[in-house]
Computed example of a mutant assay.
Amino acid sequence: MSYNTIILSRTGALSTITINRPKKLNALNQETIAELHDAFKVADADKETKVIIVTGSGEKAFVAGADISEFSDFSASEGKALAASGHEQLFDFVENLSTPVIAAVNGFALGGGLELAMACHFRVASNNAKLGLPEVSLGVIPGYGGTQRLPQLVGKGRALEMIMTAGMIDANQALNYGLVNHVVAQEALITFCTGMASKISNNSTVAIGMAIKAVNANYKSGVNGFEVEIEGFGASFGTEDFKEGTTAFLEKRKANFPGK
C-alpha cells in the first residue's frame, strides 16, 4: 500500500515504519495516525516480520507532537472523541501488538510523539533526543496515554513533574529515569536497534507474543497478571515452538522456531 505520511519497508525479519513529515517535524495528524494504524496492522500480520522498528525521518525529530492546527477549535466533545479514537487506532493498538515494537527515538519526542514511543514495547534514544509532554502549556492534558504510561515507566513524582512543568528532558536523563532503555549516537541509532531486533528474532515469536500479553496485563484494571502469565505458560507447552526449543536445547543446537 502507498502512504502519504509514512514509509513502510521490510528487510528480512525486520519491518521499519518511518514517519515522514520532516517539514512538520513528523507531527502526528489524523492522516498519519490512520496510516500508522494500517502499517502496524500490515507488519503485525506479515508472517515474515518478527520485529517492528518505528522512527522519524531526518535527524531532528522522532515526532515533535500532534498537529495542533487540526484541533485548536475543537469543542469538549470533539476533543474527547479525538483522544478515544487515537487510543483505539494507534496507541493502545501498538501496545497490544504481539509483534515487538522498538521506538528508535531520533531527536524530539514531544506530546503525542512521546506517547507513541511509550506505547512501544521499549525505546532506544539518540544522544540528541529531547523528550517531554508539553500539553499543559497549551491548556490541555496529554490525551494519548501520557498520564498513564509515563508514571508506569518513571514513577508518579517524576511523571507529574514532567507534565506540570511542560519541560523537556535529554536522552541521558531519560535513561536515568528508565524512560528509554539505551542511548546511542545519532548515526548508530538504527544500526543498534537492528542489532536488538536480530537478537529478538532468534527467539520464539509465539512465546514473545504471550510474554507481551502477560506483562501488559499487570497494568490493566481488573485483570490478574499472574493468572494471565499462568495461562500463557501452560499454553506454551502446546506449541510447536516449545517442542522445537526444548528439543534444540537437549540436542545442543540452535533452535529453528516455526512460529507456531
Rank of each mutant, 00 (worst) to 15 (best):
N218C: 08
I163H: 09
S137F: 14
Q89Y: 12
T55Y: 00
D241I: 03
L153N: 06
A217I: 01
D67N: 13
V180G: 01
M196S: 00
F108V: 09
I200H: 02
T191K: 03
F108A: 06
A211D: 10
E95I: 01
E95L: 04
C120N: 04
V184P: 02
L175N: 05
L36G: 04
G58N: 15
E161G: 05
E48H: 02
A109M: 11
A34C: 07
F91Y: 08
M168I: 15
N4I: 03
V63L: 06
T205Y: 09
G65W: 15
F71I: 10
G143H: 06
A255Y: 01
D44N: 12
C193T: 08
V105T: 02
N127M: 04
R123V: 14
K243E: 11
V184E: 11
L250S: 11
I17V: 15
V42Y: 08
I230Y: 06
M118S: 08
N96Q: 09
G145T: 07
P151C: 04
L175H: 12
A129E: 13
H182F: 13
N96T: 07
E227L: 14
N96D: 14
A159E: 10
F74R: 06
A217P: 07
G86L: 06
Y3I: 11
V94H: 01
A43N: 10
Q30T: 15
S2T: 15
A129S: 14
T194Y: 02
T55K: 00
I208C: 05
Y144D: 04
G79M: 15
H121N: 03
A174D: 06
P22C: 11
L90A: 12
K130N: 06
K156V: 08
L138P: 09
A166T: 12
I230D: 12
A159Y: 05
V183T: 08
I169S: 04
N218I: 03
M196G: 00
L138A: 15
L116W: 12
E240I: 05
M168P: 05
V180K: 01
E70V: 10
